[in-house]
Design a protein around this nucleic acid. Structure first.
Lengths: 194, 194
DNA sequence: ACCTGAACACCGTTCAAGT
DNA sequence: ACCTGAACACCGTTCAAGT
């Protein structure tokens, strides 16, 4: 919690991701931003990858916290909780595109135990939201882990296509929210049309 | 069609993507692979990005060709055609992960008109497969462009999570094929359960 | 413990020539 | 037209010291 050099470096790396994307996060720029020599970061992290892994870990913990808050918040309406959590994830992706991709797509990120743990914990919190939603809506046909995977994959795919500039109205990808809406329409049709 | 230096450079870049991913595709390595000086590529392309854009354009044309062949092949069974095309896309992604990401996810790719055109043409061929499927299965509730977008987003999301090492059995993401299967189960439930 | 400064091997890209 | 070779400004990373 104190402003140790290590914490400053992590924050500087996250800020540079927001400002200029992956390519802007050079060890030298991070060091510069913290007023230390270009090589001081190596006293705190094994290298660039480990620094980015810590950034990712911190963000995964934030996401898990949001998902858990969504679970507690409106306990009476699981559908609203789930859609609210998805909206929050989408908002995070648009506000911090390079960080979103670091967490959910980046190839170069070599995951250590702490990162994998944080990522899985955030997924588990998401999975809980899906399970409650499924119980509320009552879809007996689908395994709830598979349903969580489907929603997760669709949401990620829509976000990634938008962030990469591959989404277009003519491709049926007006917005991430709309694709999510279409998915839920399909999921809930049997219940709505008995 | 002749083995011009330009064509050799494009092929070398594609091969390096397959062999070592994005980071392996340096202008110098591409030039080396073609037996020319490190700076000869600049006589054929404005820079690294333009070279990669041409690789992407070539692959988009290949994808479009596959989708169109799938349309013609089994004209009597639109569902089989669509699922076959998706399988081919998934196979391409697994065989050429770095090239798949170049086409569908890469941020650094600055798209010129030729690339955008090739990308859109391949989507249109995919969209046709979806439209025929929808007509065959008879889902009146969904706009067909939106349905194409949903399938596209889900498939891309599942592929991207797998390529990035983010997919796990515990996350309901056993395989891309399985996520696609779950999606189609959800889409077709009303028809199967009247 | 924490940091600095020089150095190395790489990059993309540019420039001035060469045939 | 097509190519080469030197050069520049950048990287990540390593090493030998400094306090």
């Amino acid at each position: 919690m104190a402003d140790t050099t290590r914490d400053l470096l992590v924050t500087a790396a996250a800020d540079l991701l927001d400002l200029g994307g992956q390519t802007a996060v050079t060890i030298r720029a991070v060091a510069d931003r913290c007023g230390v020599s270009h090589n001081a970061p190596y006293k705190h992290f094994a290298g660039r990858q480990e620094l980015l892994a810590v950034v990712a870990q911190r963000d995964f913990e934030q996401l898990r916290s949001w998902f858990e808050t969504a679970s507690l918040g409106s306990a009476g309406d699981a559908r609203t909780s789930l859609l609210g959590a998805l909206d929050q994830l989408i908002e995070y992706a648009h506000a911090h595109p390079a960080r979103y991709r670091l967490l959910f797509s980046d190839q170069s990120l070599t995951p250590d135990d702490a990162l994998v743990g944080a990522a899985f914990a955030s997924f588990q919190a998401f999975r809980l939201l899906v399970s409650r939603y499924q119980r509320e809506v009552g879809q007996a046909g689908l395994d709830d882990t598979e349903l969580a995977g489907l929603i997760y994959a669709t949401c990620h795919g829509a976000i990634d296509l938008h962030l990469g500039g591959r989404a277009a109205d003519a491709k049926g990808l007006v917005s991430v929210e709309n694709t999510i809406r279409v998915l839920f329409e399909a999921l809930e049709r049997p219940a709505q049309n008995p």
